[in-house]
Amino acid sequence: MKSIELDSVSKAYGNETVLLDFSLDIEPGERVVLLGPSGCGKTTILRLVAGFIKPDSGSVSLDGQVVSRDKRILVPPQHRKLGMVFQDLALWPHLSVRGNLEFGLRAKGISKNEREAKTQKTLELVGMGGYGHRKPDELSGGQQQRVALARALVLEPKVLLMDEPLSSLDLELNRRLRKELVRLQEKLEITLLYVTHDREEASHIATRTISMEKGRISSN
């Protein structure tokens, strides 16, 4: 069974077609990188998989279940069992690091003791064990990246979506974090769909790289 499957998906914003008849299969545990210039449709694919937007035509499936099809969202984002790291990280500024991680656990009705244990364990996994009480704006850029990753992982998703998460970091930090990302992905055995425009970053992370241009796959 495929972990992620896009079947003949098209998507347009107004008159501008972003994806045209786009198909993609991703096996469980794969690290797939979508590589391409700005505006080629990479982020649109992540947002379709996450369920933030619906396809104009075609279908999106996760673990064999159709979650969106032909202008309809069949499974809302919160029921897709996904983790996502956004380009600007989207850490909630009014919540502490712990609060950022606990929000999803609370929404799932997990007990307080279990919440605390899972939060602490995940923070330690990304090397942020001692930072739970801090607010996002009290962290460095690299620390914020780790918290965003921890928040995406705390619910133990089967699929992790990442939208150019390292693009704003300096080269040294970028290299260090992508190594850690690969280590974590292998340890947790989750499927990774990663978007970037950086060829070097793609070559270090991907088990498969898909190059995109104008809403189509240019090489796979």
Partner: peptide, 26 residues
């Protein structure tokens, strides 16, 4: 509000939870 902040919450919660914990405090 940066829509990413709400989208990040929508991955794990319905709108009621997002409004209560993310949108309204913001």
């Amino acid at each position: 509000i940066n829509p990413r902040l709400e989208e990040a919450a929508r991955l794990v919660s319905g709108w009621a939870g997002v409004l209560k914990t993310i949108t309204l405090p913001l």
